[in-house]
């Protein structure tokens, strides 16, 4: 009988192993940065004063944010916010501003900027401007 009870527990445990079906709504910003920067090299953080003064970016609705770019024009942004609609609008204006700069200085970047990747995971917004944006995002998904 003892053996029988033990068997019952083992079978139950095996079956329960498959349980637990939560969605992934949290993002480790640092880890995500690391994943992105395996493909995008020499990324430098755009400081808050430049974001506010040069690009008129309203940072007040962002709980956490990291925006980095490199000299090739690759860019990514990871933003945590509880007001995604407002931040999306803010980022839309931010990209319009970059587009204006690019029109004058780097017209070859316009297409890649237009086809930028925009994703949301829970309270996080992710933007990637790179020709490899989809590939990079797949890596982020696989890490979750």
């Amino acid at each position: 009988m003892k053996k029988f009870i033990v068997l019952l527990f083992v079978v139950s445990a095996i079956i329960m192993t498959g349980c637990g079906n939560d969605n992934v709504s949290k993002l480790d910003i640092k880890n995500t940065e690391n994943i992105i920067e395996k493909d995008l090299k020499d990324m430098k953080e755009v400081d808050d004063s430049s974001l506010e003064d040069v690009y008129d970016l309203d940072l007040s609705k962002m709980d956490e944010h990291v925006i980095k770019q490199n000299e090739d024009g690759d860019l990514y942004a990871i933003i945590k916010t509880s007001d995604k609609t407002s931040v999306k609008n803010v980022m839309e204006k931010y990209f319009e501003k970059i587009q204006q700069f690019n029109k004058n200085y780097s017209p070859e970047r316009l297409e890649i900027l237009d086809s930028r990747l925009e994703k949301e995971i829970g309270d996080y917004l992710i933007y990637i401007v790179s020709k490899d944006a989809s590939k990079i995002y797949d890596k982020i998904v696989k890490s979750l």
């Binding site: 192993t17 969605n23 992934v24 995604k84 990747l117 949301e120 995971i121 995002y137």
Partner: peptide, 30 residues
């Protein structure tokens, strides 16, 4: 058991609000 062993996880929320006129962008799944 298939419902227990086979596991589909959605990346991002299972309820997404999309602004009128915006394009849906699949957040991913595993």
């Amino acid at each position: 058991s298939p419902f227990l062993f086979i596991h589909i996880r959605l990346i991002g929320e299972s309820n997404i609000s999309l602004d009128y006129g915006s394009k849906y962008s699949e957040p991913g799944y595993r």
